[in-house]
C-alpha cells in the first residue's frame, strides 16, 4: 500500500510460503475510479461549458493543496500521490452546480471552502484516509448547501455551446417535479421519451457531473467489471429508489394528493445524483459496510431515505443526505450481519 513504508511492510510478512501478490493498491483504485468518472465529467463540461471545468479544477487543486498542508501541519507523511485527495476534489467538483463560477456575486471561494471541509476537516482531522466516518466529498457538499443555499441551487441550462458564456438559470428536473408536477416537466422537455433521452445523455440542469445517467452508468459498469466495486450497494440502492418512488411517488395533477403505484420510477432513477451517488459515493470502501449482507441493507437504507426526501422532504433531491446518514450506520450494519462461527452457541460464549 502506498501509505506504508518499507519497515512497516516488512512487519506484515508472516510466513515463507509463496503468496500470490495482487497489484491492487490504494493509489491504483483511486486513479481507476477517477478514470471511471471521466465520461460523466466530459458530458458535464460539454453541456455546461468551461465554467464546469474551472469548478472541477478548482476543487481538485484546492483538495490536493489542503491535503498537503494538513499533512505538513499535523506532521504526518504526505500522501497526496495516492490520488485520494484528487478523487475527493473531483467528486466534490462534479457535485457542484456550474453557476458557482461567478465573479459578481463573488463565489469562487465557495468550492475552495468545500474542499477544505472535505479534506482537512472530514478526512485529515479524523485520522486521514481510512479513518473518516463520512464521505469527504459529500460532507463538503452538505456544508456548502447549508451555508450558501441560494448559490448552491442556481442551475444553468445546458447549452452545449462550448465557448458561449451566456447562461440562463432554470430548475432541475426533480425541482420542477416537486414544485409543478409531472405535466409541467413533460411540457418543458416536449415529450416523455425526449425527457428520458435528455436525462440519459445529460442535457438537463443539475450539478456538473450528475446529469448524464448514461456516462455515469458506463463508468460504474467499468468499475464493476474491474471488480473494484460489487453490485450489492448500487443495485439495491437504485432498485429501492425505483420501487418506492413507483409506489408512493405519483400525485394526482388535479388535487395534488398522492396516488399509489402511479410514480415514474425511470425518471427518478435517471434523475438527480442517484447514479453518481450509487456507483461512486455509496460504494466508498472507508465509509460503507464491508460485509455483503450489510452492503445490501446499506443500499436499501440509502434508497429509502433518498425516496423519502424526494417525495416528502423539503429538498428536491436527497441522495447526499441519504448516503451521509447511512454512513453513520455502516459499522452497526457490519456488526449486525456478522456471521456466527460454526458451532457457536450463546451460552458457550459466556
Amino acid at each position: 500500500m502506498a501509505v506504508m513504508n518499507e519497515k512497516e511492510h516488512a512487519r506484515l510478512i508472516v510466513s515463507v510460503s509463496p503468496h500470490i501478490r495482487s497489484d491492487v493498491s490504494v493509489s491504483r483504485i483511486m486513479w481507476t475510479v477517477s478514470i471511471a468518472l471521466f465520461p460523466a465529467l466530459l458530458m458535464g463540461v460539454y453541456f455546461f461549458g468551461p465554467r464546469a471545468l474551472f469548478i472541477v479544477a478548482t476543487c481538485i487543486v484546492s483538495s490536493v493543496f489542503f491535503e498537503y498542508l494538513t499533512a505538513k501541519v499535523m506532521g504526518r507523511p504526505v500522501t497526496i500521490n495516492d490520488g485520494s485527495a484528487f478523487l475527493t476534489g473531483l467528486l466534490l467538483g462534479m457535485n457542484l452546480p456550474s453557476s458557482l463560477w461567478s465573479f459578481s456575486p463573488f463565489l469562487i471561494h465557495v468550492p475552495i471552502i468545500g474542499s477544505f471541509v472535505a479534506v482537512a476537516i472530514t478526512k485529515m482531522l479524523f485520522g486521514g484516509l481510512g479513518y473518516n466516518i463520512f464521505n469527504p466529498a459529500l460532507i463538503g457538499r452538505a456544508f456548502l448547501l447549508i451555508s450558501w443555499p441560494r448559490a448552491m441551487t442556481i442551475f444553468y441550462k445546458p447549452t452545449a455551446a462550448f465557448l458561449g458564456f451566456d447562461a440562463q438559470t432554470t430548475a432541475t428536473p426533480l425541482g420542477i417535479l416537486k414544485e409543478d408536477g409531472m405535466n409541467k416537466l413533460i411540457e418543458v422537455f416536449g415529450t416523455k421519451s425526449n425527457l428520458y433521452l435528455m436525462k440519459l445523455i445529460g442535457q438537463n440542469a443539475g450539478s456538473i457531473g450528475e446529469t448524464s445517467a448514461l456516462a455515469l452508468l458506463i463508468g460504474g459498469l467499468y468499475l464493476l467489471a474491474k471488480r473494484y466495486i460489487t453490485w450489492h450497494i448500487p443495485v439495491t440502492f437504485i432498485a429501492t429508489v425505483a420501487v418506492v418512488t413507483w409506489i408512493f411517488g405519483g400525485t394526482d395533477p388535479a388535487t395534488g394528493k398522492m396516488v399509489l403505484f402511479a410514480g415514474d420510477p425511470l425518471l427518478n432513477v435517471l434523475s438527480g445524483g442517484l447514479m453518481l451517488g450509487a456507483f461512486f459515493m455509496a460504494t466508498d470502501y472507508v465509509t460503507g459496510p464491508t460485509l455483503r449482507n450489510a452492503q445490501i441493507l446499506f443500499g436499501i437504507g440509502c434508497g429509502l431515505i433518498t425516496s423519502l426526501i424526494r417525495i416528502k422532504g423539503g429538498f428536491p433531491e436527497g441522495v447526499m443526505f441519504a448516503i451521509l446518514l447511512m454512513n453513520c450506520f455502516a459499522p452497526l450494519l457490519d456488526r449486525y450481519v456478522k456471521r456466527k462461527p460454526f458451532g457457536f452457541r450463546k451460552e458457550a460464549a459466556r
Binding site: 463573488f106 471561494h109 476537516i121 447549508i146 448559490a151
Partner: peptide, 20 residues
Amino acid sequence: ATKPVLIFVLPAGGFFAVGL
C-alpha cells in the same frame, strides 16, 4: 461584506465550532 458561512449560525455549525 461578502456572504457569510450560514452553517455557523445553525446548530450543525455549533458542533463544528465546538469540536474545532
